[in-house]
Simulated scan of single mutants.
Amino acid sequence: MYVILVYDISMDRNGTRTLSRVFKTCKKYLNHVQLSVFEGEITPAQLIQLKAELNHFIRDDLDTVIIFKNANKNWLKKEYLGIDVSERTSNFF
């Protein structure tokens, strides 16, 4: 399945530590696209694992993670304004 994951981490009460852990966890499974945005192909089992790992770090009263799922990335049309990042093929920019 194709996933787009976005997160918003509150920067109070250990926010920097939470942000770092969430970023590193997402990077293990998905491609980093922009600041707090990740996307990529992932199996259902990997998605379950990713969510389980994120649940260890996300503070229910302060942070948000949104996961958009689709069976096929070809059903998703992307439009870029500004810098076109469609050519990025790895996590190294």
Rank of each mutant, 00 (worst) to 15 (best):
Y7N: 01
L54S: 08
D63A: 13
K73E: 02
Q49W: 05
N31F: 00
M1K: 02
D84T: 13
I9T: 13
F68A: 14
N74F: 00
F38S: 07
I42T: 01
R13F: 12
S90V: 06
L19Q: 11
I66C: 09
F68V: 12
L81Q: 06
V85T: 07
T18L: 00
K78I: 11
A45C: 06
L50Y: 06
N72H: 04
N31V: 03
I9V: 14
S86A: 15
I83F: 14
F23N: 12
G15V: 04
Q34M: 09
S90K: 01
T25E: 03
F38D: 06
Y2N: 07
Q34Y: 08
V6C: 08
F93R: 03
K51H: 10
T43D: 06
L62R: 13
T64M: 15
S10W: 06
F38T: 06
K24T: 09
K28T: 02
N14A: 12
D8R: 00
N72S: 14
N91G: 12
C26L: 13
G40W: 07
N70R: 04
I58T: 06
L50S: 03
I4V: 10
H32E: 11
R21Q: 15
D84Q: 12
G82E: 09
K77T: 10
E39I: 05
N91M: 03
D61Y: 08
K77Q: 13
T89I: 12
D61V: 13
Y2G: 08
L54R: 03
F93A: 04
S20N: 14
E79W: 14
V33I: 15
G82A: 04
T16L: 03
S10Q: 08
L5S: 12
D61R: 11
E39R: 03
T89W: 02
P44G: 06
K51T: 07
Y2K: 10
L19T: 10
N70Y: 00
A71T: 12
L50W: 01
I42P: 01
F57M: 02
M11Q: 11
R59Q: 05
L76Q: 14
T43R: 08
T18W: 01
I42V: 08
S86K: 00
K73Q: 07
H32A: 12
C26T: 01
M1D: 08
I4R: 02
H56C: 07
K24N: 15
F57Q: 05
G15L: 01
E39M: 00
Y29M: 02
D60C: 05
I42Y: 03
Y29R: 00
Q34I: 09
L62N: 10
F38C: 05
E53N: 15
W75L: 14
T89E: 02
K24Y: 14
K24D: 15
T43H: 07
S20I: 09
S36L: 07
R59T: 01
F23E: 05
K77D: 04
N91E: 13
E39C: 03
